[in-house]
């Protein structure tokens, strides 16, 4: 029964994931007083890409062809570990929140290699920056996960999710986790998904060589990753209230942040990440004080 629920959950989450992206875009346009595309636009985009022919560079190897599957595999496997719909619904036997961070790194590893594979300077630049940012994000992600799970004494996502009381330290850690989410989903202060400007793009530069169905898979993977991180905040870190409402609130917060901020210089991201690192250290301090 439990496994059926897990399967159902993952299917629903994957199906909903493009909608969240569309929703964020809609909210952004609402704030900017524009009309913008409909909330289902990401679905149309995926469908369009799936029907297109694929152009592959001559210089690439099997890594380039394999990377989209590795990415989609890793985000899906990571999503299995998140009890989004209720404290019992996840494959907690397979791994915990720490394992989740490492599984996501698996997909990123292949993505970065694929960026280098075509031999274009764009792809290399994207890979270099992606690995740079992700290596800075990793300690923050881990420490905020630690801070969230210190109170209940286990890094198991289900145990954290079903831990009844909401502690002050969790609140601070959630702040750091939000910064991690922004960086991991390539949102504005860190990266900008909407532009293809050489000097600023990170994730987009890395996947510049992709087209057609492979690109559709990569896009879908980034939608899923976004749902994954939102769910970690909504279901694990803040274990009360309605899940759907919480997801909407997070989406609105991300949209508001994107509209109100400008993209940072690459080396300002270091400062942002070290500040979130300090934030999660403070969360641990508060937890050590017993709050």
């Amino acid at each position: 029964m439990k496994y059926l629920l897990v399967a159902l959950q993952i299917v629903v989450l994957i199906a909903v994931s493009p909608f969240i992206t569309g929703l964020i875009k809609k909210i952004k346009n609402f704030i900017r007083l524009r009309k913008g595309p409909g909330v289902f636009q990401p679905y149309y985009d995926l469908a369009k890409l799936a029907g297109k022919e694929e152009v592959i560079s001559r210089d690439t190897s099997w890594i380039f062809a394999f990377a989209p599957y590795a990415v989609i595999g890793s985000v899906t496997a990571a999503l299995l570990l998140v009890p989004a719909f209720g404290p019992g619904i996840s494959l907690n036997r397979a791994g915990d929140l720490i394992a989740m961070i490492f599984i996501l790194a698996f997909g990123r590893f292949f993505m970065a290699l694929a960026g280098l594979d075509a031999g274009s300077a764009f792809g290399g630049m994207g890979s270099s920056r992606e690995m740079f940012i992700s290596s800075l994000v990793e300690p923050v992600a881990l420490l905020s996960v630690f801070a969230v799970s210190l109170n209940c004494g286990s890094t198991d996502a289900q145990a954290v999710a079903s831990y009844g009381t909401f502690r002050f330290s969790t609140l601070v850690a959630t702040g750091a986790l939000f910064a991690v989410t922004i960086a991991e989903t390539s949102r504005i202060p860190v990266d900008n998904r909407e532009t293809h400007l050489e000097l600023t793009m990170i994730h987009e530069a890395m996947v510049l060589e992709y087209s057609g169905r492979s690109l559709a898979l990569i896009e879908l993977a980034s939608h899923i990753k976004q749902v994954l991180f939102f769910s970690v905040i909504a279901a694990v870190a803040v274990p009360f209230g309605n899940y759907a409402v919480k997801m909407l609130v997070i989406a609105a917060a991300v949209a508001a942040l994107e509209v109100s901020m400008a993209k940072m210089r690459l080396f300002r991201v270091v400062d942002m990440m070290s500040f979130s690192f300090v934030l999660s250290v403070i969360a641990v301090v508060i937890s050590a004080m017993g709050y």
Binding site: A50, E53, E54, V55, I56, S57, R58, D59, P68, Y69, A70, I72, G73, S74, T76, A77, L80, L91, A94, G95, A99, I103, F106, A118, G119, S120, F122, L208, E209, G212, R213, S214, A216, L217
Partner: peptide, 27 residues
């Protein structure tokens, strides 16, 4: 974990394998 990654990749490969591809120079 390994089988989850593998299954998801395989499923993606089964459904989303590129049907038509063109070889070209790098952009």
């Amino acid at each position: 974990i390994a089988s989850a990654i593998f299954t998801a990749s395989a499923a993606a490969f089964y459904f989303m394998r590129p049907r038509r591809t063109t070889e070209c120079n790098t952009w």
